[in-house]
């Protein structure tokens, strides 16, 4: 991109626009930052620290089997869902890219449906469907649901990476006798790896944060972190929740920075 087109040819935004922008940025960020002091409160309820800061709620969090178990479950489900989304999404994006027909355009649009159709519709459908398939309240069921709804993130990032891939490299490889498998492994995948990793990161965050589907298809066995938080907010608003929130924000920030670093390496 022609990055350098600076401040409007010397005419920056006016004070009104600046005011809105700053106010909006603060509105976006400040409420999130409130959870940090609240998590360090010395009080028994959600509030700012009064006399001193205290780590008791972090201690609570890391010694509570309920929270630890929820985190572990969420982590493994997110790993499985990411694997499903990355494998299926990457292969599908490559196939659509290479075939480039109207039919594959339709397929790719279908793959984006989970971004458009509200989760509530999918969740109620899945509730019935999984009851019939015997997948309610199972690890496999949740991983499948999160995996299939994570595919669009991978499709989008991988398609973007493929748009910058020279199709002649694929022809050159086939022309020199490489099979489809060899071409994928040695030529295509190494070139689009950053896109695949980005897609994987987003698919992971998607599963890690997903609540609504889990609310419908899980009960006693599968208790993910978002479900625990949901119940916490609805039931007892304990400051441990703030500690969880800080932890989640930290993780998301770390993954985003990783993604940005990867992008910079790809562009640089």
């Amino acid at each position: 991109m022609n990055g350098g087109h600076g401040p409007g040819g010397g005419h920056g935004p006016g004070p009104f626009a600046r005011g809105i922008a700053w106010a909006t940025a603060l509105y976006l960020l400040l409420p999130l930052s409130i959870v940090l002091p609240v998590s360090l409160t010395d009080q028994r309820f959600l509030s700012l620290p009064k006399h001193d800061i205290s780590w008791q709620y972090y201690h609570n969090l890391f010694t509570s089997p309920l929270w630890l178990d929820a985190m572990a479950q969420s982590f493994w489900i997110a790993c499985a869902a990411t694997a499903i989304a990355v494998i299926c999404g990457t292969l599908c994006a490559i196939g659509c890219w290479r075939l480039a027909r109207r039919s594959t355009e339709v397929i790719r649009a279908l793959m984006l449906l989970p971004l458009i159709i509200p989760s509530i519709v999918y969740a109620i459908g899945l509730y019935r469907y999984f009851a019939w398939a015997g997948l309610l309240d199972t690890f496999l069921g949740v991983a499948l649901a999160h995996g299939v709804t994570g595919i669009p993130y991978v499709i989008v990032t991988v398609s973007t990476a493929l748009a910058a891939f020279d199709p002649r490299l694929e022809q050159a490889s086939r022309g020199m006798g490489a099979s489809l498998r060899q071409t994928l492994a040695w030529v295509i995948l190494p070139r689009i790896m950053p896109g695949i990793v980005s897609g994987g990161i987003f698919a992971f965050i998607h599963s890690w944060d997903e609540l609504l589907i889990v609310l419908f298809i899980a009960s006693r066995n599968v208790y993910t972190l978002p479900r625990r938080i949901w119940n916490g907010i609805n039931e007892n608003l304990d400051p441990t929740m703030a500690a969880v929130a800080v932890l989640l924000i930290g993780m998301t920030l770390a993954l985003l920075l990783l993604d940005m670093a990867l992008r910079r390496r790809r562009e640089g």
Binding site: C88, L91, M111, L113, V121, G125, R128, V148, I151
Partner: peptide
Amino acid sequence: GWWLLIAPAFLLLTLVYIAPIAQV
């Protein structure tokens, strides 16, 4: 071969996504 690459995602989407929604 290229269609086979699309197949897993397509099958998964049809069976685990589109079918439940069609049921709704």
